[in-house]
């Protein structure tokens, strides 16, 4: 996802979080598509009010060793920045997180996201907020996702997503610890980039997205279009095949890798595909099965409804008697 591959990431650097895994391994961030869309939507609001900072919380899960972060959802947290200082509406964050936690008990706060061209002391302040305290990433390390979509002249450019982890710098301050709530004095971090990738959606999401692209989802979506999905896909494969055959025919085919791939996977195809009668029979049989299952399901449903009505009716009779 990140277009900037100039950084190196081999091992997750040392972080101050107490629950961070001690075994050295590389870290990775996986972003689910809905979360990414929400992030882009939220940060794009920043431009409306003359580049006022907009931040939000990243929610999701961590792998068992704590090195793979999966961002599944996000929400915005209001903040007020005046000069060097910044006030985050802690209560809003808490309320929203607790609401989210009710429906997703296994997910937790992973870190935060924002949009900025530079990483400065404010970034470190916010990172600190998310690294410590209850209802935040503590005791695990927080991650920071930055979307750069404005250049230095405030012009909109293609969004560039970078994910960071904050390595600890200097002495880990050991102030009094009360329960989980520790106040560590230092706000110093080395923000070091870690690789991220966008997770492709499920098949259902892909179908929905394709439909969105074609602009066919309206209030009057009819079943006919849903049923023709298979035909659409077949036509798509068909056109891809034509394209490939044209490419081979064009004589420019010195692509040995392509030839190897095609030869290794295609040449022993099932014979069935060219036998239309057999194919028709199989497909019809399959459809008959589906219709049968549907019929039985309907019959069982009717039986249940009937039984419920009869019970109700006999209950009423008893009452009357």
């Amino acid at each position: 996802m990140s277009s900037d591959n100039s950084f190196m990431h081999l091992v997750r650097p040392g972080v101050s979080a107490p629950a961070a895994a001690s075994t050295a391994h590389n870290a990775q961030v996986k972003i689910h598509t809905p979360a990414m869309l929400s992030i882009l939507e939220i940060v794009s609001k920043q431009i409306i009010s003359s580049n006022k900072r907009i931040i939000g919380t990243l929610l999701g899960s961590r792998s068992e060793d704590g090195n793979i972060f999966e961002i599944m959802d996000v929400f915005m947290v209001p903040c007020n920045e005046t000069g060097d200082s910044i006030a985050i509406e802690d209560q809003t964050h808490k309320t929203l997180y607790q609401l989210y936690k009710k429906s997703h008990p296994k997910q937790s706060v992973l870190g935060w996201f924002g949009s900025s061209n530079t990483i400065d002391s404010t970034t470190s302040l916010i990172h600190d907020f998310y690294s410590k305290g209850v209802d935040r990433a503590y005791p695990f390390p927080a991650i920071h996702l930055n979307v750069e979509y404005l250049n230095n002249d405030n012009q909109i450019v293609a969004p560039k997503v970078t994910t960071y982890i904050g390595a600890a710098v200097g002495k880990p301050a050991t102030t009094a610890q009360i329960g989980w709530n520790t106040n560590v004095a230092t706000n110093s971090y080395i923000f070091t980039p870690i690789p991220n990738q966008l997770i492709n959606g499920t098949t259902t999401e892909k179908i929905a997205f394709n439909n969105l692209q074609q602009g066919v989802i309206t209030n009057t979506t009819n079943l006919h279009q849903d049923l023709s999905y298979l035909s659409q896909q077949l036509e798509k494969v068909d056109s891809n095949l034509s394209e490939l055959i044209n490419y081979i025919d064009s004589g420019k085919s010195d692509n040995v890798d392509l030839l190897r791939l095609l030869s290794n996977t295609l040449l022993n195809r099932p014979q069935l595909l060219s036998n239309i009668e057999e194919l028709q029979k199989l497909f019809r049989d399959h459809n008959q099965d589906v219709i049968m299952v549907e019929y039985l399901t309907k019959a069982v449903k009717d039986q249940i409804e009937l039984s419920a009505r009869l019970t109700a009716a006999s209950g009423e009779n008893k009452y009357e008697a």
Partner: peptide, 16 residues
Amino acid sequence: VRETLQQWKNSLTNIN
């Protein structure tokens, strides 16, 4: 490879 692709293309039309 070309021949196989062509056969596949024909059978796809059948499937459709």
